[in-house]
Nucleic acid binder design. Structure first.
Lengths: 80, 80
DNA sequence: CGTAATTTGTTCGTATGTATG
DNA sequence: TCATACATACGAACAAATTAC
């Protein structure tokens, strides 16, 4: 699922994978995505890599992060 | 007692130190080891580091942890 | 019964050092 | 030199379980 060798950075692959899970309806609006540590487990990556992936998703406007709580799928997947 | 500079990770040093205290009979079977906050004070470390040290001791089969109570020295230090 | 204090569990924020390409 | 990636470590906030009052 994640290619640790290929040219695409891991954090981009992980961000894309999570985005796919959101668009597939596996991860629902206002509900949390897996925690950083869970992403570390699921994808076999370092925490810093998980954080960069989540940061990418924030920049894409797909999630919001709350300290001490987690990162949540935004209610409106892009809109005004 | 704890070397904050050397190559050995702090959490390993702290785990080793606690194990030594168990083997020396300072920390007795079925009795609690110092709480995470006490370890923070005693060793001048962060709580996360104390938790990683305790996790190591659990993996070594030396202690068991109970939520809201504490971490206890196992009755049988390895046996069948 | 409710409240507070203690203790472990979980989560994100940040910084540093190391290694690789 | 820079980006990527991992490991370590400290800090802060939030949460749940237990115990004392």
């Amino acid at each position: 699922m994640i290619d640790h060798e290929g040219p695409t950075p891991l954090y981009v692959q992980v961000a894309d994978a999570i985005q796919a899970r959101i668009e597939a309806g596996e991860l629902l609006p206002d509900r949390p995505i897996p925690s950083e540590n869970q992403l570390v487990q699921e994808y076999g990556i370092a925490r810093g890599t998980a954080r960069k992936a989540i940061q990418l998703l924030r920049e894409r406007g797909l999630v919001v992060t709350v300290v001490g709580r987690g990162t949540f799928v935004v209610a409106e997947p892009r809109q005004g």
